[in-house]
Structure formats: structure tokens, C-alpha cells
Design a protein around this nucleic acid. Structure first.
Lengths: 354, 354
DNA sequence: CTGAAAGCGCTAACAA
DNA sequence: TTGTTAGCGCTTTCAG
């Protein structure tokens, strides 16, 4: 036993020291160590010093996961964040904003990528639940999140970002997709366009559907028949978007203005316009801003979202729920912003008509 | 007691069920439940079925954090990933590659942003250690990581990404910065340039220093005096890079080719070249590839890195260390690739000389 | 094939 | 101001 405790006299020990080791070295009870390392009151300055010294000598690190086992509320000080992909810039911004807001409370974040795959969604949620996260913030893809009702009713805080949940009532923080897309339609029409095209993402992605609806509504409200709008959907990457745009632009009655519902689609459309030498002739507005959009030729007009605001608000909501906020679930809508850079202000060409 | 256990007969219970609850419902011992949920052998098919049924009925979720308390090796099945920023695309790619490689082993990742701030580095490492991560993968900024020696000698697996550690021996996975930068120098010189400029990031960032060294070495090896190379450093964002580039290009004896050590610096340089109408006259090569580089006018020639490969290899190394690999620490170098897109192939202009 | 007992590192509740 | 006891949910050990 003496040898055993001697192993903790120096910091070269192999095993990680426990509270008990610190207590023994400082000659106090274990609860006193707990009070000191948790900054709880009720410890004399003298003992506090002794304990601190022992802590440093042993390089002691409080095990917060062990503590959470018995702590009231069993908080693990961690949350799970499920995103389309951590490598996606939009997701990255949300992630970063959340991290900053949660760090001040000492909450760490587990991040994972769903790849818009319902199977992954279930598995990753399960993996996080097994780690007893204090809450979940997620961008879901499954048709319904009703399968989470049992967890939610067990007081698992839930906040949806970018997409609203289906089949379950929970907070959500989303972009104003409809209005943003409608703004794009209005802007194009205001610049004289009547032959419009909508290039959209997978129809099972909620935001894509809303942008489509918003765009067509905007067209309709301007008194233009929506049946004349060329709609191409289920474009999930640059390549398919390029092909769809190329086909549309070389068709018999090509659009004079294009709206793309997402960055990759915007990129595909940009490439098609270039390939056909139409980038200064056909208007383009993309949903979601991107790096260097202003450096393109022409600059790309976009409906910008605010991922930092989404992330910050989502963090605030999950914290409120963790702290026991029981108010009814609510959806928070973050407005978009039309940024004019040139491509969206191109007017229909005289010779473009049939 | 009867009321108590009845609360777990249905899945509408408020509290999260424990193994004991499942055991009671299935009429078996707790250890049997443990065996079933952990897929351990030695349980008859009949009992296994009974336990599974109870598990589903109660919506039981194994608490892996509680289990790790006593499990041999005390593995928490989680690792900590410290990046410059989760919102940085390069970091995002590394993150994603690691996530994919670790997911197959059921390891979750805590991600955090350091902002190249040594204070944050210490605090975040500490936060992760407190959660008893099985390993740490990090892009550090502090001058020395010697302060982690105690932890490392306590068998905490450590892998450095993008930057090599100082003051401690540990695995590292880095880009071939020197050779990549030297390639840029050789490429520019090969295209006839002799008046070169180097625009670099903060000098306390290891990769920046190495790219500078590599670039100057490359210049020297080509038989050109390095004293003629205009060097501007400590450019950490687009704005400062823009100003430095602008100043350089409007100086008395301006460079005919520019090398920028990092994306934001590249963007600043691109803007300066445009502002001065020199984008088709002065050559530019940027270190690190970026989205839409090929869509710029001219396309931007870059020294591309391979963040996915870095992330994948880093994940493999941390897994090997977690599994007990005791071989000497090693640095793995991932090669770069010169991608010609136009900006790097511009020749010095006849009228550009003095 | 199954289960009872001990205890992982810590905090809550209560004593002293 | 301090310490003792019980026990969080699980895995280990070891006995049936």
C-alpha cells in the first residue's frame, strides 16, 4: 500500500490520479477535494491551498464524466450536433457559432455528419444518446422525427437547425426560405425577365421544397404564369446541375434568368453559362452566399443566409431548454438578404427572344 | 417498489431506464442484460430474445460513459479534435475524413476551434482531458507542447495534424510545405520570372515559416538571389494581405510574380491584382487549393494540399496508438500537387521592367 | 449459461 | 469548516 501511494508522490506516475489520491496527499477528506476542484464554498483558505498544491503536484484532472453519474440532473456538459457534413461551409459556420456560445458554459460538442442519409441519422443519434449528451441540435433528413418522441418526452432537449422537424414538436431555427426565394423571383422580374428557370436540390430536402414554393409564389404574385417557369429538380451536385442548366439553356425557348436553390447547383449553373458564353447575357441568382462570389465575372447575386445567427440562436435555445425552459416549441426564422453583385441584374437580351 | 417498477412497464416513463430495469422486466440478472446489449457470447438464444424484447419495450439505451468507468482500459470511445477553426474549409475536410475513419470503430469526436490562440489551446485540451477522451488530435499554436508530456506519458495518445509538435515526441501528419513552396518558386522561375514576392501568414505559425523557407530555397536553388525576393509576412487576413500586395505592386520595382502562403492571403493578393488591373500581367500562385479557383479570371494556379488524406492518416495513427502501438513517434508527410490554371503561367511583361 | 458482489471516480445528503 | 456514507449505471471477477 505504501508503494501504491508513493506512486502518486511525483507526477511521473503511470496511472491517472483520483480524488482519493489528492485527498491522501493533502491530508484531507475526499469531499474537501471535491469542493476545491469544483470551486464550491465552505473551505478555509488554508486547506484550499493545500489541496491546490496536491492537485498540481499530481497533475490531477477532475473526471467530469464520472461526476455526471451522480450529479443532480446527470448533466454531461456535452451536446450532440448533427449536420449535413462538417466539411460543408454552411454547416461549419453554424458549428462554430454554436461552439462559441456553448463554450462559455463549459459545454463540449460532439459533431457528426449525416450526409442527408436517414439511416445515418438514426445511428448517430443513438450513438450520442448513449453518451448521454445534454441535448441534441440537428439538421435532419428523415421524413419524420417521430421516433424521437420517447427521448424528447424524457426531457432530452432538442433543437432543429436549418430544417423544421416533422412528426414531433420541438424548437427549430431556420432560414426564411420562402421569402428569400420570392425575393429572388421579384428581383429577376423587376429586371424585365419573364422566362425564368428554377434549378433545385433533392425534393426530399425540406429547404429545397420551400425555396421552390417561394420562388414560384413570387413569380405568381408578380402576375406571371408559373407554368412558364422551367423547373429542374433533384440536382444534388455540380455535375447534374451543370447538365440540367446546359440542357435548359440550349433548349428551344431558353430562360433569360435562372434561380438556383443551393451552392453546388449555383456552381453548376455558372459553369453552364460560361460554357455557352451566356454568363453576361442570362441572369443568375443563387440561394446561399459563398466565398469569392464577388470575384466572379460577373459577380454572383445571391440570397444570403446567416449561418452564424442560426448557430448562435440554436445554441441559446438548447441552453434554455437544458436549463429547464418548458415553454411551447417554437420555430425561429432568420431573414435572408439579397446581395446584388451583377449576375442578378442582367436584363433580358433583345436577341434572346424567339 | 411495485409502482416503481411499473413505471418501466411502458415506454412513456419519465426517467431513463437502467440495466436493472431491463433485467427486472426480462426476469434475468443484470449481467445477462449487459452481455446481450454488448453482444457478448454466452447467452442462450431464448434469454437473449427475452432481454431484447425488454430492451425495446423500455427503449433502453446503454450508457457508455457509465460503462467506461469500470471497463478495462477505461475507454470512453471518444477523441478530441482541436482545429484552427471548425468553420475553416481545410479543417472541415480533415474533420470529415477523421470522422469517417473513426465512426467504423464507434468513436465519437469532440471538435473545438483554437483560433491559433495558445490560451485556448490549453483550456480546450484541459476540457477534453476532463472528459477522458481516448486520444487527442490537434493543430497546435503554442510554441511548445512540452506541457503535455505528463499526459502523454500517462498513455494519452496524441497525433498532431498540419503542424509538428515542439518539445514533445508524438506522431504528426503534415503537408510537405517546403517542397510544395519550392515547387511554386521553380514554376514561376521557369516561366521567366526573376522579381518575386512572398506573401506570408503569421510567423508564429509553423506552416507559414516552412513555406517561406521552401520558397526561398527554391528560388536560391534556381540560381536567383533570394535577397531580391520581396517578403511580406504576418498577413493573417484578406485585408492586410490586400494592403501588402497593393503596396508591393505599386512600389518602384514591383514583382512580376507573387506567391501567397495561404488562402486568405491569396484572396487578398487576387483583389490587389484586380484593383490594379494586373491580374493578367502579374503571375500568382497560392498555397492551398480552394473552391472555384478554376472559375476565376485567370484561373488560380495553386499548390494543392490533401486534407482528406491528412485526416484519414491521422485517424489511423490515433487508432493505432489507442490500440497500444508503442513504436517511436513518427512524422508522416503528405505530398502537395501543383495545379496549373493560368495565373501561375503568366510570363513577365515586356513593359513591366524598369 | 447465469448471476451476485465489488467497485470504477465522483457527488449528494447528511453528520460531526 | 470538514468528513463519512451511500450509490449513480455499469463492467469485472468469480462463483454457481
Amino acid at each position: 500500500m505504501t508503494t501504491m501511494s508513493n506512486r502518486y508522490q511525483s507526477d511521473s506516475g503511470r496511472k491517472r490520479p483520483t480524488m482519493k489520491n489528492v485527498a491522501d496527499l493533502a491530508g484531507v477528506g475526499i469531499k474537501t477535494v471535491s469542493r476545491v476542484v469544483n470551486d464550491e464554498p465552505g473551505v478555509s483558505e488554508a486547506t484550499r491551498q493545500r489541496v491546490m498544491r496536491a492537485t498540481e503536484q499530481l497533475q490531477y484532472q477532475l473526471d467530469i464524466t464520472a461526476g455526471s453519474l451522480k450529479r443532480s440532473g446527470r448533466k454531461t456538459q456535452s451536446i450532440g450536433l448533427l449536420l449535413p457534413s462538417v466539411s460543408n461551409p454552411f454547416s461549419g459556420e453554424i458549428h462554430r457559432a454554436m461552439e462559441d456560445a456553448l463554450a462559455v458554459r463549459g459545454i463540449a460538442v460532439f459533431a457528426a455528419s449525416l450526409d442527408d442519409d436517414p439511416d445515418r441519422e438514426r445511428k448517430l443519434i443513438s450513438a450520442f444518446l448513449g453518451r448521454r449528451v445534454d441535448g441534441l441540435v440537428l439538421t435532419t433528413i428523415a421524413k419524420s422525427q417521430a421516433y424521437m418522441i420517447p427521448e424528447h418526452s424524457r426531457d432530452l432537449p432538442l433543437v432543429f437547425v436549418d430544417r423544421e422537424p416533422a412528426g414531433i414538436e420541438a424548437d427549430a431555427v431556420v432560414t426564411d426560405n420562402e421569402i428569400g426565394a420570392a425575393k429572388a423571383a421579384a428581383h429577376l422580374i423587376q429586371h424585365g425577365h419573364t422566362r425564368l428557370a428554377y434549378l433545385g436540390d433533392r425534393t426530399d430536402i425540406q429547404t429545397a421544397g420551400r425555396r421552390r414554393t417561394g420562388f414560384l409564389d413570387g413569380v405568381g404574385k408578380a402576375g406571371i404564369s408559373t407554368s412558364g417557369v422551367a423547373v429542374r429538380e433533384n440536382l444534388h451536385d455540380e455535375e447534374t446541375a451543370f447538365r440540367a442548366a446546359h440542357e435548359l439553356l440550349t433548349s428551344e425557348n431558353p430562360p433569360t434568368a435562372v434561380f438556383s436553390s443551393q451552392n453546388l447547383v449555383t456552381f453548376g449553373a455558372m459553369r453552364a453559362l460560361r460554357a455557352l458564353g451566356l454568363h453576361h447575357k442570362v441572369a443568375l441568382i443563387g440561394f446561399d452566399d459563398f466565398t469569392l462570389a464577388d470575384m466572379m465575372d460577373p459577380g454572383i447575386t445571391v440570397i444570403a443566409q446567416h449561418p452564424e445567427r442560426i448557430g448562435k440562436l440554436a445554441a441559446e435555445r438548447i441552453l434554455a431548454r437544458i436549463d429547464g425552459d418548458e415553454s411551447p416549441a417554437q420555430t425561429y426564422v432568420i431573414p435572408t438578404e439579397l446581395i446584388q453583385r451583377g449576375s442578378g441584374e442582367i436584363r433580358p437580351q433583345a436577341d434572346a427572344g424567339k
